[in-house]
Amino acid sequence: MANPVWTLQDAKNCFSAVVEAAVRGEPQKVTRRGKWVSVVLSAEEYERLKQLDQASAPSLGQLLLEMPQDDGVFTRLPVAPRDLEGV
């Protein structure tokens, strides 16, 4: 079944029907001024999507390994004595 598209006003007026359809596994699209702005999902579907997203997120170690390495283009600037005051 195609997922219905609700205007924001209609979704507000029929919120129980929107939620019931989402609970049945039918995501409900909501538009505002003709632009698609929201989807109402069941809590079960939301949790499933959240777990998928977390499972595909890179770990900190992966992010660190993917960082560009110093290729010699940038060199360290010498530390001026004033930078060490109060250390």
Rank of each mutant, 00 (worst) to 15 (best):
R76G: 07
F74G: 04
D83E: 14
D53G: 05
Q69C: 06
L65I: 07
N3T: 13
R76D: 10
E66T: 00
F74A: 09
L60V: 14
Q62W: 07
E85C: 07
E45P: 00
E47P: 05
E44L: 06
L64P: 01
V87S: 01
F15S: 12
A43P: 07
E66F: 00
K50M: 08
V30S: 02
F74M: 09
T75F: 02
V79F: 10
P68G: 10
A80V: 08
V79Q: 06
S59H: 08
W6C: 00
R33A: 08
L60H: 11
D53R: 03
K29T: 15
E85F: 08
K29M: 09
P68A: 13
M1V: 06
W6T: 02
N3W: 10
V79L: 14
L60I: 14
W6Q: 02
Q9A: 14
M67I: 06
V19I: 11
L41M: 10
K50F: 02
V87T: 11
S42D: 01
R32E: 12
L8F: 05
A17E: 11
L77S: 15
A22E: 02
R76C: 10
R48D: 05
G61N: 13
F74V: 11
W36S: 15
E47F: 10
G86E: 03
E44H: 08
V40S: 01
Q54V: 11
M1G: 13
S16P: 06
R33V: 00
E26C: 08
S56I: 03
L60Y: 08
S42G: 05
G72L: 05
S16K: 13
A11T: 05
V23P: 00
T75I: 07
A55C: 00
A2P: 09
Q51G: 02
L65S: 15
D71V: 09
K29G: 03
E66P: 00
N13E: 12
K35L: 14
E26T: 13
Q51S: 13
S59K: 05
V37N: 00
Y46G: 06
V37I: 14
A55K: 01
G25V: 12
L49N: 06
C14F: 11
T75P: 00
V73I: 08
W36F: 15
K29C: 06
A55Y: 01
L41T: 01
V18E: 03
L65E: 15
W36P: 12
A57F: 08
